[in-house]
Nucleic acid binder design. Structure first.
Lengths: 208, 208
DNA sequence: CGCCGTATCAGCCAAAAGGTGGAGAGACCA
DNA sequence: TGGTCTCTCCACCTTTTGGCTGATACGGCG
């Protein structure tokens, strides 16, 4: 049985050491490096060429986790990246998977779950915490379901090419409210701009 | 009934032979020559003075189809050129018709359609595949909407939801140039925002 | 009863997009 | 040769957007 080399990326020292101790109990898993930021992660991964990178998405300063995943994946496609984070917002999940994450674990995951994720990752299996999986599944299956009625209404008008001001007038709400709704829509669709939201919405069957 | 002489121009031998066999089934059509490039086409057409030239637009190397059409038309205005190609991009259609093509067929056209195009061409009739016709019609109806090749390229990327910066990187041009192109595209499409441009482009058949 | 999801609104700030006007290089055309 | 088109780039300025934080209100649910 080969040993699985792992690099930990988290800006909290305590989390890293805890994780290190936990993984240390497993004979077939070895933590070969640590990093506290996205930039550092790239360096460390370069040095140790680990099989798996366990990474927190939220990093204090500098490059964020998503960007780090993209770059890691670009440099060594065979290396598996597992997201290990506190929050499970829809946007983060979609973007992380999009960026190439092999797994998505929440920090309250059971030890056994973490071990399984690491071992699964090297075999090309994608392991994720139950709540994350269900969300992702729902997203892929019917992303519109997670939009509230009002949001769906707004999205539909958005595909007409209206501006925030016009959207407000059309729906009899303030521009501020429009922006709030839009922010929620972007998060749920996993995009950052209205352009991408429109492209996604129109192509996503139904509204042409 | 006079026999219609045809010259085939396509850089793929298989396409030429298939077409030759197909046209051979018609008593009134005779393939009198073949060419694999634009230059060769000019020579062969010179030799055989065919009634019709069936030509692919995409030729591996050397003179492209559009240029070949222009020259053919210039040398023998009576000779009909029919474009027979795989793609139906707006730019190609417009340029081919501009260059003097009498017809525009897609390679998946039905045999009957091809025969009709050849026979129609000698009578001065212009025959084209349905999707091509509809595009051209739309172009003619609203000439202002003809996008330049570069603009079309940009518009297509625009529908992916990219930002100006990303568009620039992707096309190896500055953000300033991107903005210039976008302004032109908006004007031609009759919209004011990128959102509307995307909505229009995606819905306007073709780029999904 | 508090908690959560939904919908509404505000203000502030940075980034992106859009408008205007100009300009040079290269291709093409008459 | 001169005019036109296309593609490229720049500067300056305004508007739009998106990100962040926070707030109020209503209704359902455990």
């Amino acid at each position: 049985m080969t040993t699985i080399s792992v690099v930990l990326v988290d800006d909290h020292t305590v989390v890293r050491s805890g994780l290190k101790a936990l993984l240390g109990t497993q004979a077939d898993i070895a933590v070969v490096g640590e990093a506290a930021s996205g930039e550092e992660a790239l360096e460390v991964a370069q040095q140790h060429a680990p099989d798996v990178v366990l990474m927190d998405l939220a990093m204090g300063a500098g490059m964020d986790g998503i960007e780090a995943i993209k770059q890691l994946r670009q440099r060594r496609p065979k290396q598996a990246v597992i997201v290990f984070t506190t929050y499970d917002s829809d946007a983060d999940i979609v973007r992380a998977v999009d960026a190439g994450a092999m797994g998505y674990l929440l920090k309250d995951a059971a030890p056994a779950e973490i071990f399984a994720a690491v071992r699964g990752a090297v075999e090309g299996k994608s392991v994720m915490s139950a709540p994350v999986a269900s969300r992702l599944f729902q997203q892929l299956r019917n992303p519109d379901e997670i939009l509230t009625p009002r949001e769906a209404e707004l999205l539909s008008l958005l595909t007409e090419g209206l501006s925030n001001r016009d959207l407000g007038k059309r729906l009899f709400i303030s521009e501020a409210t429009v922006k709030t709704h839009l922010a929620h829509i972007y998060a749920k669709l996993g995009v950052e701009t209205r352009a991408a939201a429109i492209a996604t919405a129109i192509r996503r069957e139904g509204m042409r």
